[in-house]
Amino acid sequence: MIDEVLALATREIKKWFKNPFLLFMMIIQPIIWLGLFGKALNLTGLVNVDTSELPPDVTRQFSQLINGALNSLFGTEDYFTYMAAGMLSTIVLFTAMFSGMSVVWDRRFGFLNKLLVAPIRRESIILAKMSSSVMRALFQALLVFSVAFAFGLKLGNNFGPFDFVGMFSALFLLSLGLSAMFLAITIRIKSHETVIAVANLLNLPLIFTSSALFPVQQMPNWLQALAQYNPITYATDLVRTFVLHSRSGIDIAKIANNFQFLIAFAAIFTLVGLVLAQRGLRKN
């Protein structure tokens, strides 16, 4: 079964790397996101006033006030850093959405039938889709992270290899859960239009009810309640905690709690995906 998953996942990855245009798009996409969106929404700049005419003492106090406010809001004085961390989860979400699309393609082109008449386990087909989608998502996240760094992401002064591993573990769990979720949703769908509609319907609410772009504490109560069940909130908070890891230390209990939620999320949807694979892949 492991060999079956490997064989199929290799196919997906191979197809992906053999398409230079797709690779190019993948590299350009995070640059657009971070460069345009991240820099355009310059919240820090909004409160930057010209202080040159004020006495130096007042200027110092004023900027302290502003920075204090930003810090309590975003946990950092730099909104770009705040958003870039959220962007890692967002790009994982976008990549995972397309895992569902590839089943529809395979069904349309008849490749799925070829797999279904082969003496392989049905679960292998889904596992291969999940693992190739996870690999793509993590690769994308790594790209976004590098681009964000080049664009001025400010790492916490205590950031180390442990934080890097922690950050990508969180993203791994998120991408596994989301890929499995989208596969489960799209497994019986036969047209691309439907998949795109479903993906569009889900992607914005998932982003906006999470802490990816804006802190949960500042949301209205009903939105906060929703955000509590959004795995993207948990993954983003983890990524942010690790990225901003400063000398003041990190809250181990909160990290453990977030990881628990993500592990449960990934496990449940992987299981759902595997169960659905038995019946869902088959024709009618």
Binding site: R11, K14, K15, K18, N19, F109, G110, N113, K114
Partner: peptide, 9 residues
């Protein structure tokens, strides 16, 4: 009936 061989490979 469909062609299922992978064009990219």
């Amino acid at each position: 009936q469909e062609l299922t061989v992978d064009e990219d490979l």
